[in-house]
C-alpha cells in the first residue's frame, strides 16, 4: 500500500523535449515516406497508365482519372484494374466506360495492392490540389535529326538488332512502307500510332510498353534512349508519308500490299525449279519411258 501511495514523479523538461523531438522526427519520417509514395506513384503512373490515361489533362485512349477516387470506392478501382473486361460485364458504370472508349479495351493490369495504393494516393493528391499530371521522363534524350528516320526503320525491320536483345518491331507489327513482305500481324499496324498517341505518350510507350504482350518481353529488354529517339522519328515520319492511314487498328494491313502476292508466287516457282534441279538425277521410272521411245 505504501508503494501505491507514493506520489507520481513529474516529467522533467528534458523528457518533454525528447518526446517532442521524437514526435517531430516521426512526423518528418512519415511525411518523407508519403512524399516518396507519391513519387513512386508518379513513376508508376507514367510507365503503366500514362500511355492511355491522364490526370486532369482530359480523356486520351482511356478516361481522365481525375476525381476517380471520389466517384468510386477503392475496391471498385482494384477490381476494375485487375480485369476491366470482367468488370464491364457485371458493372454498369464499367460497361458505360467500355462503350464510350470503344474499340479500345483496357488490358488487365498486374499491380500489387501497394502499387495501386501509391497510384490512388497520387490521383487523390493531384485531384485535391486540382493539378494536372506532368510526366517527367517522357521526353526524348535529344532532338530528332533526319538520319534517325533511316536508323529507326532499320531498327524496326531488325536490320539493326535492338541493343538489349528485344525482338525487332516487325516481328509483331507492320507499318506502311516497311517493305513488300510487311511486318507481323500479332500487334496492330503502327502507321497511325503517331495520331492515336500524343508525342509524350508515344515516347512513354516506347520507353516502357505497357501492353500485356509487350510487357513480358520488354520489361527485361528495354529500348535504349537512342533507340527510342530513332523509332519515334520513324513512326512520326510514317504518319507524314501515309496521312491516309487509319487510327483504327487494322490487323490485316500487312497483307494488303499486292507485291506480296507476286513475291509469293515468284518464291514458290523458284523453290519448285530448285527442287527439280536438285533432284534431277532422281529415277522417274524406266519402263514407260522405254516403251514410249521405242520405234513402234
Amino acid at each position: 500500500m505504501e508503494m501505491q501511495s507514493e506520489p507520481k514523479r513529474a516529467r522533467t523538461a528534458i523528457e518533454r523535449l525528447a518526446v517532442v523531438g521524437l514526435l517531430i522526427v516521426f512526423t518528418t519520417l512519415v511525411g518523407a515516406l508519403r512524399a516518396e509514395a507519391q513519387d513512386d506513384g508518379a513513376k508508376l503512373f507514367e510507365t503503366r497508365c500514362y500511355s492511355c490515361h491522364n490526370i486532369g489533362g482530359g480523356d486520351k485512349q482511356g478516361p481522365d482519372l481525375k476525381g476517380v477516387t471520389e466517384r468510386q470506392s477503392r475496391e471498385w478501382i482494384e477490381e476494375f484494374v485487375k480485369s476491366p473486361t470482367a468488370m464491364s460485364r457485371k458493372d454498369p458504370v464499367a460497361a458505360e466506360l467500355f462503350k464510350k472508349f470503344s474499340p479500345t479495351i483496357m488490358p488487365d493490369q498486374t499491380l500489387t495492392p501497394a502499387e495501386l495504393d501509391s497510384i490512388i494516393t497520387l490521383i487523390k493528391n493531384l485531384t485535391s490540389k486540382n493539378e494536372t499530371f506532368v510526366p517527367s521522363g517522357a521526353k526524348l534524350s535529344r532532338a530528332i535529326v533526319p538520319a534517325d528516320i533511316i536508323a529507326g526503320k532499320e531498327l524496326f525491320t531488325g536490320q539493326i538488332h535492338l541493343a538489349n536483345g528485344a525482338p525487332s518491331c516487325n516481328s509483331c507489327h507492320s507499318v506502311n512502307g516497311v517493305g513488300a513482305l510487311g511486318g507481323g500481324t500479332l500487334g496492330p499496324d503502327l502507321t497511325a500510332a503517331n495520331i492515336k498517341y500524343r508525342d509524350p505518350e508515344l515516347i512513354s510507350i516506347l520507353q516502357s510498353p505497357n501492353f500485356p504482350t509487350m510487357n513480358t518481353i520488354f520489361t527485361n529488354h528495354k529500348l535504349t534512349d537512342e533507340e527510342v529517339v530513332q523509332l519515334f522519328a520513324y513512326l512520326q515520319n510514317a504518319k507524314q508519308v501515309y496521312p491516309e492511314a487509319s487510327v483504327v487498328p487494322t490487323q490485316a494491313a500487312a497483307t494488303t500490299d499486292p507485291r506480296f502476292l507476286v513475291l509469293g508466287f515468284g518464291a514458290a516457282t523458284l523453290v519448285l525449279i530448285g527442287l527439280n534441279v536438285f533432284w534431277r538425277k532422281r529415277s522417274h521410272g524406266v519402263r514407260k519411258e522405254m516403251v514410249r521411245r521405242s520405234k513402234i
Partner: peptide, 11 residues
C-alpha cells in the same frame, strides 16, 4: 529419306 535410285512399281 529420298532415295533417288529406286525402281518404280511400274518398272
Amino acid at each position: 529419306f529420298h532415295n533417288p535410285s529406286l525402281p518404280k512399281m511400274d518398272d
